[in-house]
């Protein structure tokens, strides 16, 4: 049981952090489809630096630096060049996947994977007794717990969080309150870049300690789904991410437990199906409640 919970947490951590990143962005009014790209770039930068320097601190710093630059690029393209947010997000994801795959070959001469000599520290390694499974958890998982509390606090208990939320809920109101909307969006994207860097590092340096092409397997998009599934609220997003972690762990478990009875693919489908159902139910509820849809003068896609 303890082992299973740990597996859940391990599976959930990258999605969780990326989903928090997506939540900050969405709260500020930016639909973030670039989470997948930031996960991959973070994972690659962390692993490559770990291989090159052997320092986990430098590895994390490199991942953060790369993601901050990419997030700023995202902001510049969508703000100053008025590019379509969703397409830039998808473009970011594609570029990151391609560029890391390319760099994997060019820098490391291997198409398969690079192995890191070091992994993320595990603060509770070596515990014995019932708490022993905790030893398998990396520091990033514990950071995710703290950061999700921080996300809740910053959004729900600070005026800065209110201003950020106003940028997404009603940019005109935000502007009227004197909030520099674009700057808050940049801040949200940079926070997101940082969180995705941690998520990426967890992906490549926690259990497997290697980076391979396609390492993220769409977890970034799953994180985006968790943002909407969780109602763009800190607690909801965390619960949704943990649910995705649970489903992933069940998928792994089911391969072991009942290989023939239920194909693991169907277990793995569960989070996607649940997401579709949940998002539809929410939409229906909003419609029933007669919530005014914002009038779109002319679609700008």
């Amino acid at each position: 049981m303890g082992d299973f919970l740990v597996t859940c947490l391990q599976a959930a951590t990258p999605i969780w952090l990326a989903a928090l990143a997506g939540m900050y962005a969405q709260r500020a009014g930016v639909v973030h489809l670039g989470l997948e790209g930031l996960l991959v770039s973070g994972a690659f930068a962390a692993t490559a630096t770990a291989v090159g320097t052997g320092s986990i601190v430098l590895a994390l710093a490199a991942a953060v630096a790369v993601n901050l630059v990419l997030s700023a690029l995202f902001w510049v393209l969508t703000t100053y060049f008025k590019a379509n947010v969703m397409i830039v997000g998808l473009g970011l994801s594609l570029t990151a996947a391609g560029a890391t795959g390319y760099a994997l070959v060019v820098v490391f001469g291997s198409e398969a994977a690079i192995r890191s000599p070091i992994g993320l520290p595990r603060p509770f390694d070596g515990l014995s007794g019932p708490l022993a499974p905790l030893g398998d958890l990396s520091i990033v998982t514990f950071a995710a717990v703290v950061l999700s509390w921080f996300a809740w606090w910053s959004i729900r208990r600070t005026r800065a969080g209110l201003r950020l939320s106003a940028c997404g809920s009603d940019p005109f109101a935000a502007k009227s309150a004197g909030v520099p909307v674009e700057r808050y969006r940049l801040a949200a994207l940079l926070i997101g870049g940082f969180l995705c860097a941690l998520a990426g590092a967890e992906l490549s340096l926690a259990q497997v300690q290697s980076f391979s092409d396609g390492i993220s397997q769409g977890r970034g998009y799953l994180a985006f789904a968790a943002v909407l599934l969780g109602g763009v609220a800190p607690v909801g997003v965390s619960v949704a991410s943990l649910f995705f972690g649970l489903a992933a762990a069940l998928g792994i478990q089911s391969q072991v437990d009942f290989n023939d009875a239920l194909p693991p693919q169907f277990v793995l489908m569960a989070p996607y199906v649940v997401t579709i159902v949940a998002i539809s139910v929410t939409a229906l509820a909003n419609r029933r409640r007669g919530r005014q849809q914002t009038v779109i003068m002319e679609r700008t896609l």
Partner: peptide
């Protein structure tokens, strides 16, 4: 200019206080 998903109290807080804090 009141964000639709804010509470009344949150709206007051949004419009008060110095920027940058």
């Amino acid at each position: 200019a009141l964000p639709p998903d804010f509470t009344v109290a949150e709206c007051f807080e949004l419009f008060n206080g110095e920027q940058g804090t």
